[in-house]
Design a protein around this nucleic acid. Sequence first.
RNA 1: CGGAGUGUGGCGCAGUCUGGUAGCGCAUCCGUCUGGGGGACGGAAGGUCACAGGUUCGAAUCCUGUCACUCCGACCA
Length: 435
Amino acid sequence: MRLSRYFLPTMKDNPKEAQVVSHRLMLRAGMIQQASAGIYSWLPLGFNVLQKIEQIVREEQNAAGAQEILMPTIQSADLWRDSGRYDDYGQEMLRITDRHDRDMLYGPTNEEQVTDIFRTHVRSYRNVPLNLYHIQWKFRDEVRPRFGIMRGREFLMKDAYSFDLDFEGARRSYNQMFVAYLKTFARMGLKAIPMVADTGPIGGDMSHEFIILADIGESEVYCHKDWLDLDVLTSEIDYQGDLQPIVDKFTKIYAATDEKHDPSLCPPEDLVSTRGIEVGQIFYFGTKYSEALGAKVSKPDGGEAVVHMGSYGIGVSRLVGGIIEASHDERGIIWPEPVAPFGVGVINIRTGDEACDAAAEDLYAKLTTAGREPLLDDRDERPGSKMADMDLIGLPWQIIIGPRGLKNGVVEVKNRKTGETEEMTPEAALNKLAR
RNA sequence: CGGAGUGUGGCGCAGUCUGGUAGCGCAUCCGUCUGGGGGACGGAAGGUCACAGGUUCGAAUCCUGUCACUCCGACCA
């Protein structure tokens, strides 16, 4: 992409309404624009990142055996009356009336809808386990939206729903999602700690919130200090195998949210207390919705079983802010490579200079061919503002091409994260970054 | 939903107390000089001062109401 043609409205000044770092940087980097309280438009740079995150989530869900569907944003109130939640949900649910005066709602979640799909088509134990997920916009009419995209009213969420014959099956499904979440967040360069979470009226030990540590986190969290240098999960996973050992490994070290914190379970000298951002939650809720909505399958012995369900959410749009909170400096964003909107930023220090133009165009073409998704700053701007913009939008690598270096046959390769720069020939730069 | 606050050009702000026909920095456009960390000079464009009503010869400024947004708290992916 050429910056001269790319819609990237960056800002030098901080918008006053943005208090937290990620919100400020997203506005300054031209990623989003607020449409109304807690509702945002996504501009090209922000949308690019959102899609990269979405794709990682999708790949890991598929790898774990979940199947993607797409359910609507607008739902009928009838299903919610069946489950009893139409009256329970309260003001957070945005209620709408259509032209025929029928009660509709903008979905805050999809348990009812997915259960309806299941009960319509699945009648036999042979067709479970089943795990269906979708990545769709949700709306919750928060009283007080804040933190920019991280606590908006409209948000993009991946939600998966598992259906099993019994509790043991549900535990296997739960473990699959548990491990898939570890892999998903690790791929984004995040350390997300699974913390014991409140299971509500269901009870048991099958709910975890996946939390990344950050000062501006919305809730107080507690964990053993061993978490801080525990390696994230990167190995290949056989999802059909026994996942319990992996789950055990990541649950035996103490970590709990505020509500579930029990000081007796962790020596005080090892306890770390900090704030965290919840980026995912997994939950086993038994037969709550299957019972209410009649999702039953026939068993091998001819009887009927009400299916056991679980739901598994990932805040896709929230992750954009979460990643920035976890990875930035005073100059701007520092994208982890897997979610970076472009792989390499090529800065032509002096657009219009014959040698600079030629070198920049050549590198740009070759990086494009190599699949590195380069962003070429070919604008006629001052060097300072080009560098400031490139640092702000946080691409992992920069190649800086200027007359001074070219005189000696070199360009400068800069690592955004470490700030280290290295001079080398354009060919060497290409070899280093094209991989 | 309680508490606090803010609405003036794209962004950040001054002007409001003490009414007199709107200003500054950055950004934008044109020109010249520049050119490795947000440059200089000259010129230009851009505002129903959130909205509605009222007071007044005259309202960004005073009064009444409405709306929007932000921050702190309680609540949530």
